[in-house]
Design a protein around this nucleic acid. Sequence first.
DNA 1: CACTTATATACCGACCGTCGGTCTATAATT
DNA 2: AATTATAGACCGACGGTCGGTATATAAGTG
Lengths: 210, 210
Amino acid sequence: MRVIKKHDERKNEILDAAERLFHVKGYEKCTVNDILEEVAIAKGTFYYYFKSKKEVMEAVVSRYTDVVAERANKILKNDKISTEEKLVCIFRAMKINDQIDSDVLNEMHKAENAQLHQKILNQMVTTMAPILVQVVEEGVERKIWSCKYPLQYMQIFLSAALTLTDEGIFKLDKEEQGMLMTALISLIEKMLEVPENSFNQLFIQKWEKT
Amino acid sequence: MRVIKKHDERKNEILDAAERLFHVKGYEKCTVNDILEEVAIAKGTFYYYFKSKKEVMEAVVSRYTDVVAERANKILKNDKISTEEKLVCIFRAMKINDQIDSDVLNEMHKAENAQLHQKILNQMVTTMAPILVQVVEEGVERKIWSCKYPLQYMQIFLSAALTLTDEGIFKLDKEEQGMLMTALISLIEKMLEVPENSFNQLFIQKWEKT
DNA sequence: CACTTATATACCGACCGTCGGTCTATAATT
DNA sequence: AATTATAGACCGACGGTCGGTATATAAGTG
């Protein structure tokens, strides 16, 4: 019965199970017992690693946003791609404009799930906005863009995008989704003070290519 | 012990108590028993009027958004004020750019409270965006504004504003709040394609006047 | 018109199942 | 011997259910 594992291994097992269950059942509907069952551990073990259900959720979210942030930072530091492309790539890394992909964040949206969404939103805005600001500043330095409130604009963009595309909050049909995307792209153009439709191609190409 | 009241009277008593308690204790921390105590009714009575705690919450939110929507519609139909002022007034009616006022929505933000926030956000965007679109269209007809995606822009604006100003999600100090407001105003200018800073005065005056 | 009878409405509170979380015991490792 | 990891019985709070009761109003009845 008793199986002993390395601290981090067990911890990750719990995180994996939690992540999976959260986006299958939704955070609120997923009970601690569900997680115990999946990992095949007892309650005591669970609470030996995490002090509450909420803490696991936050750990799951952090683990995810860390991965995204790392990806984004790599893109940022990559000298081989243009500033415009960096922006698009980072958005792609966040799955903001991607419909097909069924990865953690997108799946999580589906479950009606206020707490989880809020945490994701918070983490995402907090960690990603500053990275995006760096891209924007790069563009400003290279004189291709101009932007009065980089941080605030990125915060606004992220919070709106993450909220409106959350299927657990707003139910949009394909057409509405398309309109929203178009509007979001056009807003970025305005934020960076580039001519209308100059980003259109860039974004659409990128996301149909893959 | 037994006090009998008209259906709507009782129902409103419950809603009043719930509303008060939700923003004092927060939705999640407020138990059904708390509400029962406040209204001085038994559990059966509560569940005679509402089929769940969540349903009461939704009713509280609807009652509030209905009031706001009504105020907004009155402003919209008022021929005595300019289109620009209508926009400002409607935002004021939603308490988006108001710091002092301690009314329901603002107070509710304070409690860490994902479910309630999400419902408010949803209701607010759903009911208010279309009203704002009418104002925008009025401005477009009068040739003072121009706007490519009125509905989407308003949705984006509302979701960002309501999310970022939620004290339960993001903790901003006074300075950050100010920057955010400025950025939001400048974004509206971009959305409506008016010159930079043309709304600045309008918004600031309005909100310092009262 | 008084007087039962019936029906719908409002209300009560004991009870239940679930769930997050605690506590103590104990096995394994160092 | 001490520390670390695991187990699982147990707890209390909470949302929600259920069977039943009191009140008011309407409908039948002599």
